[in-house]
Design a protein around this nucleic acid. Structure first.
Lengths: 121, 121
DNA sequence: GAAGTATGACGTAAACATACGACATGGTGT
DNA sequence: ACACCATGTCGTATGTTTACGTCATACTTC
């Protein structure tokens, strides 16, 4: 790609320079990095029945914005939605969710301060 | 605030409309939402001694950009840095880190698909 | 004090994220 | 066919993040 020679600031492109695991963890964290998406996940978990699109009525956001967040959650595989006539049933995709959770928690568990015995910090 | 009456699109402001816990979880996830910050945390965890600012040499990023990520991690309280003469010692702030980890994992554990028995999904 | 080195702060450009109104789509019911 | 309803898509305005070069600061060493 000769074009890359002319790119001055490779904004946002450096993410690909890290390990696949680091990218994957960051990707999962990004999905969880907005309170609305946390709220949606919690709402779906609490709901006893499949929830249609009136999730927006339970949130301080417009239907359009909620739909956008739902799309992101769906793209990440954390939830799945199937059309049921007039409404769409959104549910947590437990399989993908558990995998994502496992990957994230595994990374978090591996982070442990190994320095700072007494000389510094 | 009368000014709010004139704000057409309240971009990015709706985050405050969610619960403090949802905001906090999202804030933690946001810090972890970039592979560079994951890499920095892992690097600090693996390092046996306190690491100075040459973290950038271990990463595919410029020193300036790494410094920016370090600042974000520091603002979040996940790491701490103390000046030691010419260099700065960056370490994981185990106490804050553990709290953040606990909050995040607690939220993740509470998410469980409760619908979709057989009728849908 | 001057030179050298390591660091953070400032400024800037490009890409992305957020939020919403308006429109298009597609099934329901009359 | 027609109106109705719930949903997704598109366009747009605004704010935030990412990435880097350049400068200012501060400590060390000669």
């Amino acid at each position: 790609m000769f074009t890359s020679y002319f790119i001055k600031h490779m904004t946002y492109t450096k993410a690909t320079a890290f390990s696949p695991e680091q990218q994957e963890v960051a990707r999962i964290a990004k999905v969880l990095s907005h309170p609305a998406r946390i709220a949606i996940l919690q709402h779906l978990a609490e709901a006893k029945t499949c929830i249609s699109g009136d999730i927006s009525s339970a949130l301080p956001l417009s239907r359009t914005t909620v739909s956008q967040h739902l799309t992101e959650l769906k793209n990440a595989g954390l939830i799945k939605g199937e059309i049921d006539g007039l409404t769409v049933c959104y549910c947590i995709d437990q399989e993908t969710y558990d995998k994502a959770r496992q990957l994230l928690e595994g990374m978090l568990a591996a982070i442990k301060s190994s320095c700072c015995t007494d000389t510094c910090c």
